[in-house]
Design a protein around this nucleic acid. Sequence first.
RNA 1: GGCGGUAUCGUCUAGGGGACUAGGACACAGCCCUCUCAAGGCUGGAACACGGGUUCGAAUCCCGUUACCGCUACCA
Length: 487
Amino acid sequence: MTSASPRPRVRFAPSPTGFLHVGGARTALFNWLYARKFGGDFLLRIEDTDRQRSTDESTRAIFQGLEWLGLTWDEEVVHQGANLAQHQRDAQQLLDVGAAYRDFTPLAEIERLRNDAESRGLAFRFDRRMALISATEEADKLAHGEPYAIRFKVPEGSTEWNDLVHERIVFPNADIEDFVVLRSDGTPVYNMAVVSDDIAMRITTVMRGDDHISNTPKQILLYRALGAEVPQFAHVPMIHGPDGKKLSKRHGATAVGDYQYQGLLPGAMLNFLALLGWSPGDDTEVMTMDELIAKFDVHGLQKKAGIFDTKKLEWMNGQHLAKISLEELEPFVTPAFERAGLATAAELHARHDWYFGLLELLRVRARTTDEIATLAAHFFRDSVEYDPEAMGKQWRDVAATADILQATRDRLASLPLWDAHAMEDALRKLAEEREISGGKIFQPLRVALTGLTVSPGIFDVLLYVGRERSLGRLDAAVAYLSQDAGA
RNA sequence: GGCGGUAUCGUCUAGGGGACUAGGACACAGCCCUCUCAAGGCUGGAACACGGGUUCGAAUCCCGUUACCGCUACCA
């Protein structure tokens, strides 16, 4: 078995047939963490040999997704499609060393036999003898340019490896048929291309989804036949939807980009993904990237598929939202403010202290950056829209409310300084004089200032809405109520 | 069908023979805090798939069963 190299080289090898999937992102993350942890290299290979399904748009989406997550790769991206000649050379080498043979059986014939067997409920298995022909016959077919596939000659015995997450896995070779490595049109089959590329890229540890476990014995056989060192393998579990089936579009958002668009923080996404299928062994959950790197260990990898729980993702995002520095947070929130049409980045920067103070107020109450923008709306708008439910609840007695709001306005207006403590003292005193609870003043006031029954602390709202606008909103509320009473 | 993988609260997980009356987190419920909402704190319900072994002793080791997932292509 191979020994762990001091400088591991790992890779993430997605097919560009769609957006970056959360499952792929997690596989990339584990590889990335492993590389960072041991000072190795994290490489990216785009497996674009399937011309039908591969698109440049998907390739760009994968780059974009990885960049957003901060999962940067160390060397130039490898495009598998560009390595055709190398794949063919390796397939030819298999032929040269006698590890593979030419199969002139027409593809149509194989398909016919397979369909036959299947219609009778039997499993079709390619029989090596079908391809057995004499040397002169083969020379003749070659001379006539007859097409042939190259098949790997699976040896006797069994193939086993020590998986980093599953420990020992053994496959009897008798269960593996002589698989094609190079099609009759000269293109390599998946397992051939992967092994050829991983050898060329000098990959030391192959960490991928456990749906590849069954491919692994074939690949190990290929490494050996090619005289290459067999890398270590780590098969990480899949991600399933809430119904236990493989995560797919019908489960909702599965593309990393969807979450970026919803206002998730990449750090939260990564933290959540890391914990789905991996555990540091203790109870720590909310971690920075540096902590993840420090704590990452393949022994903490789970064998069982995990279910994607968006509730916990949201919670995780809320934790990160509240914990990272405002400087780190700002670049993610400002675009949300711009999208919501609240202010431009320039306007926000011009009011830096006010803006950051506002963020501090709102971030603990939100679970996404978009939600912060939503909560911030009434701090920007000129007028307030009264929520009918809020009015129904806090402004029931119209005349009394107008009266208390007027009194509130007068007290606040008479304050020499627009200061939270002074405001609280004044309003609590007003409540005392009227023999009512503070809430009886604060709640109607909240509706007047925000139109809603929920908001940050009322004195913070007063402070951040500002003196002029606060008093203006109170005037507007009193006018609105008086008009209502008159009607 | 064959082969392979997996199996602890609804979900993510800790656990690697005795510290398990099975711990933490999300979600849920209640309480506290409190001007509302969050956040935070406390409390509660909630799991070792089943059956056999091995052992003085098993969630932990072995075997079987069941369920789920994957592979079984000249797809990736």
